[in-house]
């Protein structure tokens, strides 16, 4: 039979096409029946607003997906790092139903961004986008200062219509006078911010003993705490703890237990450090902050 094929190019061509279509049908065409099924819908996930959509298009234009992924895998390390404070914060099908195209990416030169929304205050993003190394000294992310230019809104409405996303005149108006940076930050702040479990995770109070295990030996703990602070916190609270994007910590009224909870769980623009640093290091930070309180 093969000998015959080698003399009949048309049959060879057709047969090759058929052979190619078998795997294609099973693994590419058939899954359309299951993927994005209405039963996988997540209630909180809404289509993009005009401003967020423009931001997403800028993300595509700049090729941020060449360095950043947007899918968190159900692996311990992935969840702890990119969906801190949860155990099931990995990505689900329902999160992506409005993503045309998907932006999952294939390479994590930088961190995953699927849950970046709400992790930092807007002010952090503006500074970081303009000059990443001012916030994270060893970063190799390009600076995007030029994105302070006005946003091109000539296609906004056409884009919303093309994707069939609902919008109000007010929302459409809201893109007027915005910069590209505004749109980009609006998009970043949306990412992962509409998934219900996340809010639950952040609001649950910490259980367990909230007393400083280093109370006996604060000075030594504060020494390590200082190093940790310089690595993780100065970009927002300043070298002198006097604040910047985050508040002045020298005047903080929080108790040690509350300081611990705040750092461990984060909240309102303060990132959660519990999963990335662990209890011990967080207590060392608390020791450091306590030791600086009231000092000039």
């Amino acid at each position: 039979m093969f000998d015959l094929l080698e003399k009949k190019p048309v049959i060879l061509l057709l047969l090759a096409a058929v052979v190619i279509m078998i795997g294609t049908t099973v693994t590419m065409i058939a899954p359309f029946k299951w993927i994005n099924d209405p039963s996988q819908k997540i209630v909180g996930v809404k289509p993009y607003t005009p401003l967020q959509l423009e931001g997403r298009d800028l993300y595509i234009r700049e090729g941020c997906n060449n360095c950043h992924t947007q899918t968190i895998r159900p692996l311990v390390a992935d969840v702890a790092r990119y969906a801190p404070g949860s155990t099931d914060g990995y990505s689900k099908v329902g999160e992506f139903v409005y993503d045309q195209p998907h932006l999952w990416g294939s390479r994590r030169t930088g961190p995953d961004l699927a849950r970046i929304g709400g992790k930092y205050p807007d002010a952090w993003h503006y500074k970081h986008m303009e000059d990443p190394r001012s916030m994270v000294p060893k970063s190799n992310m390009p600076g995007y200062g030029f994105m302070k230019q006005p946003l091109d809104i000539s296609l906004t409405e056409r884009k919303m219509k093309a994707l069939g996303f609902p919008y109000t005149p007010e929302e459409l108006d809201a893109v007027r006078g915005k910069t590209e940076m505004d749109a980009m930050v609006a998009y970043l702040q949306k990412l992962g911010n509409d998934i219900p479990w996340r809010k639950a995770a952040a609001d649950a109070p910490l259980v367990g003993n909230l007393t400083n295990p280093f109370a006996e030996n604060v000075a030594a703990a504060a020494e390590t705490g200082k190093v940790l602070f310089q690595q993780n916190c100065v970009q927002c609270h300043g070298v002198d703890l006097k604040g910047g994007i985050g508040p002045d910590l020298k005047t903080s009224a929080l108790s040690e237990g509350d300081l611990f909870s705040k750092i461990f769980q984060g909240k309102g623009g303060m990132p959660a450090f519990g999963d990335t640093l662990g209890k011990e290091k967080v207590w060392k930070l608390v020791s450091y902050i306590s030791s600086r309180k009231g000092l000039k």
Binding site: F96, Q100, A162, L163
Partner: peptide
């Protein structure tokens, strides 16, 4: 894809479907 202008279009597939086709 769904063209919006000469320089801009959106994929015809969404989310996980788009990823699988890709």
């Amino acid at each position: 894809s769904i063209p919006v202008s000469l320089f801009k279009s959106y994929s015809a597939y969404a989310g996980a479907n788009d990823a699988n086709v890709q």
